Structures are given as structure tokens and as C-alpha cells.
Amino acid sequence: MKRLTIIIFSVLLLITLFTGCSSKLTSSEKQVPDLTGEWKQLNSNSEDSYQAATISDDTIEIYWVSDNGDTKSLYWAGSFIAPTTADKSFTWDSKNDHSKTDSAMLASQDDTKTMTYQNGVLSYEVSIMGTTTKVKLEKQK
């Protein structure tokens, strides 16, 4: 009788352990991405010149960076709308803060800029002297 009780208890314990483990492995809840922090351009043609962004609260600021980070010039200062769902992609229209960009020589004078976040990459278009390119940034750890 004692032996049967130990066997039953052991089987129940194993079932409980395996059921708990398997449910944890299969139930991967998607989380809303946190975009706040520092971002750096992935697709720059130069190692010492690129764009970098800082997202905090409800603002995004993007800079032209050169001289290995020694020189920074404002490109964009605008609104940031954080994602509220865990969708695969997220897009928002950032409104330019002209009080910051109007006096910056290399800043965009556009009223809005469409920003997209997808698969860990933040992207937007930059136009200079008739040439438009898509800039892609990744969050820095």
C-alpha cells in the first residue's frame, strides 16, 4: 500500500511538473515594444557618420552624427506616440517642433515625418538636395 501511494504521488508530481513546463514554453505572450532609449543607424555608408535618435516620453530627436560621435547636428525634433499594442509593425506621424528645428541648419523643415517601427527597426525617409533615402535605426543596449 505504501509503495502504491509513493508511485501514485510520483506520477502526479511528474504530470504536474511537465504540464507546468509545457504551458510556459508554449504561451509566449507578445509584449508592447518599448521604443524609449538611444537608437543608431544601421544602413549608414560610413562608420563615423550616421544618424542617431533619442526617444523619451513623448518626443523623438534625431541627429546627424560625425567625427565618430564628436559632432552632432539636429535633424529632427518632434512628437513621439508610443505603441499600445504588440502588433508586428507600428507607424506614427511625428509633428515637427519648429521651436527647435527652425534654427538648426541641417534640420528638416517638414511639418510631419512618418516613422515606422517593425522587427526591431525604426525607419523614416530623409531627403537632401533631391535625393531621398530610407534611414534604418536599431535600439542600442
Rank of each mutant, 00 (worst) to 15 (best):
88 K>W: 02
61 E>P: 01
88 K>S: 15
50 Y>H: 04
28 S>C: 10
44 S>D: 00
37 G>K: 05
129 M>R: 13
74 L>Y: 00
66 S>H: 01
106 L>Q: 08
140 Q>C: 08
116 T>M: 02
17 L>V: 11
18 F>N: 10
123 S>G: 02
126 V>A: 10
80 F>K: 05
81 I>K: 06
123 S>K: 04
56 S>K: 15
110 D>T: 06
91 T>Y: 00
27 S>M: 10
27 S>C: 06
124 Y>I: 01
39 W>G: 02
114 T>M: 09
40 K>E: 14
15 I>K: 07
56 S>P: 02
131 T>L: 14
26 T>M: 10
24 K>G: 11
21 C>S: 15
22 S>I: 15
68 N>S: 13
110 D>Q: 07
10 S>F: 12
9 F>A: 15
86 A>D: 11
48 D>S: 12
101 T>C: 07
21 C>T: 12
53 A>L: 03
2 K>R: 15
104 A>S: 08
135 V>T: 11
54 T>E: 15
71 T>N: 12
112 T>W: 04
65 V>Y: 01
111 D>T: 14
105 M>Y: 13
30 K>A: 14
54 T>Q: 15
88 K>Q: 11
50 Y>C: 07
18 F>K: 05
23 S>K: 13
25 L>I: 15
95 K>N: 08
120 G>N: 05
132 T>M: 04
3 R>Q: 13
131 T>F: 09
38 E>R: 14
40 K>H: 10
101 T>H: 12
140 Q>T: 14
25 L>D: 06
69 G>A: 06
99 S>K: 12
111 D>G: 07
62 I>Y: 02
21 C>V: 14
127 S>R: 09
122 L>I: 02
118 Q>Y: 03
62 I>N: 00
106 L>E: 10
97 D>T: 03
68 N>G: 10
55 I>N: 00
32 V>Q: 07
86 A>T: 03
96 N>I: 09
69 G>T: 06
133 T>S: 14
66 S>R: 03
134 K>F: 03
79 S>G: 09
78 G>D: 00
38 E>C: 04
39 W>H: 09
94 S>V: 10
33 P>L: 04
94 S>E: 01
64 W>L: 14
128 I>T: 12
22 S>F: 12
76 W>R: 02
67 D>L: 12
28 S>M: 13
21 C>L: 14
113 K>C: 00
72 K>S: 07
43 N>H: 10
112 T>Q: 08
141 K>V: 08
49 S>M: 09
19 T>G: 15
75 Y>E: 03
38 E>L: 09
91 T>Q: 09
63 Y>R: 01
11 V>K: 04
81 I>S: 13
49 S>H: 04
108 S>W: 02
135 V>D: 01
118 Q>N: 06
100 K>Q: 11
31 Q>R: 11
45 N>C: 03
112 T>V: 08
54 T>F: 13
58 D>Y: 03
51 Q>I: 07
91 T>D: 09
127 S>V: 11
105 M>R: 13
90 F>I: 05
8 I>D: 03
39 W>C: 06
